[in-house]
């Protein structure tokens, strides 16, 4: 029983790993190929099946005029928009969530739970619904095709996630901790930033990670709300898929676009395994 179970378990994990890792391996090997090695049937092992080259990677820096794909500017645009959008969402979302968790709001029949749901409901709507309103609004304020406009849109998209995660987190932080801080001599603001906030870093890290993932991987809005001035990475990569696709550069660009998420995942994993998420309270 035990042996069979663990065999099956490892088999399942192995299968799943192959399933997840194979595309990466394929992308990595493709990124070192040239036109010849891509088009002459399937090749797998560098130096044996094909002669590796760095051309695909070099093209990332070069402008299209030089035969490159110029992915650097979209990359940093994406970093800037995602970081700014996530940071602002986390700050506003954490404050909103704390208020929703600790104070009672009443507006007619509306209560705290309804307000929290209102935030989340923004994410339940299919994004397409928001495309035209966003387009019109950004147009009115001349924010179409600007980083600023994208950041605003991302705040709208990411803040519900931050609010949702942080409300849940604060609800699990015992109220006694705030009350004790008040008794110990803090005013309500000090109680929040001296005591509750330091204890909430794990929640903020998780919320921040989700914001970054959702922001970084958004294609839809950055595609619709930008044209020529500003381009984000996902849009730039998809744009490579033209009549003669440079598969090597496309693979390299795709790997570059995944790298930051892998990096974030490793950091968060480190953070989690240090036990910072558990035992912070009680």
């Amino acid at each position: 029983m035990g042996l069979l179970y663990s065999t099956l378990k490892y088999l399942a994990v192995t299968l799943w790993s192959v399933f997840v890792i194979a595309p990466f391996l394929w992308a990595i090997s493709t990124s070192f190929k040239d036109f010849q090695s891509v088009t002459n049937g399937a090749t797998y092992i560098p130096w044996v099946d094909f002669e590796p080259t760095l051309e695909g990677w070099r093209a990332l820096w070069k402008s299209p005029a030089q035969g490159g794909v110029a992915i650097v500017e979209p990359f940093f645009n994406s970093v800037f928009v995602t970081a700014a959008g996530s940071a602002i969402s986390i700050v506003l979302g954490t404050l909103a969530a704390y208020a929703l968790s600790r104070f009672t709001f009443k507006a007619g029949p509306i209560r705290n739970g309804d307000i929290t749901f209102f935030f989340i409901s923004q994410r339940i709507m299919p994004p397409v619904v928001l495309a035209i309103p966003f387009f019109i609004m950004l147009g009115k304020f001349s924010l179409l095709d600007t980083l600023m406009g994208l950041i605003l849109v991302y705040i709208v998209l990411l803040m519900p996630i931050a609010v949702w995660i942080m409300v849940d987190f604060f609800n699990k932080v015992p109220r006694e901790i705030d009350e004790t801080a008040l008794i110990d001599g803090c005013n309500p603001y000090q109680a929040f930033y001296k005591v509750v906030l330091p204890n909430s870093i794990p929640g903020i890290v998780v919320a921040g990670m989700f914001c970054m993932i959702f922001g970084w991987t958004d294609f839809f809005f950055s595609f619709i709300l930008t044209f020529t001035e500003v381009q984000l990475l996902p849009v730039a990569i998809v744009a490579l898929n033209s009549s003669i696709t440079p598969w090597w550069s496309l693979s390299a660009a795709a790997l570059v676009s995944v790298a930051p998420l892998v990096f974030v995942a490793f950091i968060v994993e480190r953070f989690l395994s240090k036990g910072n998420l558990s035992g912070a309270l009680k």
Partner: peptide
């Protein structure tokens, strides 16, 4: 008056510590 202005000490039934 607010809690801090009253200058009272209170201990709850379950431990409350500042974990950080």
């Amino acid at each position: 008056l607010s809690t801090s202005e009253r200058n009272i000490a209170q201990v709850f039934q379950f431990p409350v510590i500042y974990g950080t």
